[in-house]
Design a protein around this nucleic acid. Structure first.
Length: 121
DNA sequence: TACTTGACAAAAG
DNA sequence: CCTTTTGCCAAGT
């Protein structure tokens, strides 16, 4: 049996992308997480690139996902350039995140790990 | 159909 | 400590 791979549009299997969207939607306000943490939660710890790729697709169409709460492992706002409209740095600051030079200062304090928050057995 | 690129991360040298 | 390589999966060329 194939994995979660969309073979066809009719296939009801959930793709990696879709799962990324679900996790991102669960990120609490004022918190952030990393691409790797999401990937790990999805069972693909080394697919962090795909997480970013998935979010990239959000720029095409409208979405209500807090993509600005997803940063890299260092707490660096790498995807900043891909944001349209309001910069993610500003969005995060409005949520109380302390950022200096695209770098989250209190990362360890506001870090939200889906593996912990969603309490994986 | 094959090769390259991409919002990253961990391991190796 | 810094640089290079590898892995992951999808989409564009």
């Amino acid at each position: 049996m194939p994995k979660n791979k969309r073979l066809h549009e009719n296939d009801k299997s959930v793709s990696f992308f879709d799962m990324v969207y679900q996790v991102v939607a669960l990120i609490p306000r004022g918190k952030v997480t990393s691409y790797g943490a999401i990937a790990k939660y999805l069972g693909a710890a080394r697919s962090s690139r795909m997480v970013g790729w998935a979010l990239n697709g959000l720029n095409k169409t409208q979405h209500n996902l807090p993509a600005h709460r997803v940063v890299n492992r260092q707490g660096l706002l790498t995807g900043k350039a891909h944001f349209r409209g309001i910069p993610m740095e500003q969005l995060l600051r409005e949520e109380g995140v302390d950022i200096v030079d695209n770098q989250i200062q209190n990362l360890s304090q506001i870090y939200w790990d889906p593996n912990d928050a969603l309490q994986v057995d």
